[in-house]
Computed example of a mutant assay.
Amino acid sequence: MQDVIKEAGLSVGAFYRYFSSKAELIRAIAEEKVGTIVGTLEQLLEQEPPPAMPVVMAELLAQVDRNLGEDGPVRIAVQVWGEAAYDPAFADLVGAIYGRIRDKAAVLAAKVDPAADPAALAAVMVGLVQGYIIQRVLAGRVDREVYLKGLGALMSRYGAEGAHEAR
């Protein structure tokens, strides 16, 4: 927290006038960035006809890359996920944030593929984006186009038929 306060150019007292805790600061940052992701989903929802799922995923991953900078919000998200494993306040924060994203993704999924289970499709969409984030932040070796190409190959080779066989 001392580094954050110093970077902001505030005194400790001034900082705590705005934020009562580290969790509150992270919540404020997260809310701002969730708005970006939800905004991306809303823009995709407005398109007529609705975009195909590969277009949806490409745009979501592009949004990740746009927010990946050295101190970008994507990196902060990974830190918050780590904190959530040990801190119930962070776990609640992460649950609420991803609940909002999943809910909006489910609305989009229902529009993109009315025959699919929107909650299931949204859960997978969010999981794929989170997996991409982890690989970009921790490994730094995955390329968006390669990731999308792999996703396309996975779905074309092991699509709906493969999913039923796994049961």
Rank of each mutant, 00 (worst) to 15 (best):
Q135G: 00
L68A: 09
S21M: 01
T40P: 00
G152A: 13
V129H: 02
L68F: 13
L151K: 03
V126Q: 04
R100T: 08
M1E: 10
E24C: 01
E70G: 10
A163K: 09
G99C: 03
Q79N: 13
A163C: 07
A115W: 02
E145A: 15
V94Q: 04
A166T: 11
E70H: 12
R167N: 05
V56F: 05
E48C: 06
I29T: 08
E48A: 15
V142D: 03
P49M: 11
Q79C: 09
R75G: 09
G95V: 14
A84T: 03
P49S: 13
I76F: 05
W81T: 02
L151T: 12
E24M: 02
L121H: 02
S21I: 02
F90A: 06
V78W: 01
G150I: 08
A62E: 15
Y98H: 13
A52G: 08
P49I: 12
T40V: 15
E165C: 02
L154A: 15
A160G: 12
E32W: 05
L151N: 06
E42C: 06
G162S: 07
V146K: 13
R17N: 11
G9T: 05
E70L: 15
V64W: 05
I97L: 08
L108R: 02
R66K: 15
V12L: 04
R167L: 11
V56C: 10
